[in-house]
Amino acid sequence: MKTNLISIALIALITSCGGPQQSGEKSGAKSLSGAIKIDGSSTVYPITEAIAEEFRVDHPKVKVTIGISGTGGGFKKFSRGETDISDASRPIKDKEKAACKENNIEYLSLTVAYDGMAVLINPGNDWVDYLTTAELKKMWEPEAQNKIMKWNQIRPEWPNLEMHLFGPGVASGTFDYFTDVIVGESGKSRGDFTASEDDNVLVQGIATDKNALGFFGLAYYEENKDKLKLAGVDNGNGPVYPSIETVKNGTYAPLSRPIFIYISSAAVKRAEVVEFIRFYLEHAGHLVSEVGYIPLPKEEYSAQLETFNEFAVSYQ
């Protein structure tokens, strides 16, 4: 009885997987070969790497390569037709759109995961519980430079102690995003904070300084829970702490962002690319959380897959 059930389930699984595959697949799945070139954001890299690693098990002859020249650098190559897929931690900019158009490259953007940004303090800090977005703005806006230096300037009941700020380097997508949603303009912030491109340096900095406050990707907090303390963020609807649930259901706003892959229309003419993207969307659900990011709800991945199938068929 039990084996029967399993075999029924298997058959159901096989047929359901077979459905979308037939539309674009001409050759058998096992004999796929060729090369897929991917470049772009180092934030998205761990996800794409995990997908490529698993994809290689099924399709060992397809050579998938991934670069990390950053979201902007990736789009530059993408718009010249040098890559098939671009990893991006922000949506494509108008300038980059124009470059794609100039070279007759059309594209499809797919959301593959969420990245939560955490505001962190030292475990010895017993006065901060949460911060409002207005307080974060007051702390980080350019006007705060050399003026807002103490905790009691943010909230009067907080102690008269120096405040030490830590954040990612100005070239990172994380910094762009944080300043965009908190300060109001991407890339604008005070300059007198400790910046590092290496998030592990920020972890060390906050972990050893009682008066520290910093922000970076949630994945780095997950790995250093014992050394850091999370601060909640209040956007007007009460303080919310970042977690898989609050990022997924959108209540942890505005410090969570979607991350994307962009697929070129020229590339979907090739069966191996089509198969790779399908594989991506079918397996992202569990692989994304394995590498420390937050997956979309299941239905979203199916919806993305449908959008992609339509896109792929229209360029075949």
Partner: peptide
């Protein structure tokens, strides 16, 4: 090398 486009994941 990163600028000229050397990659991070090369499985061959």
């Amino acid at each position: 090398l990163i600028v000229i486009g050397a990659l991070a994941y090369v499985p061959f």
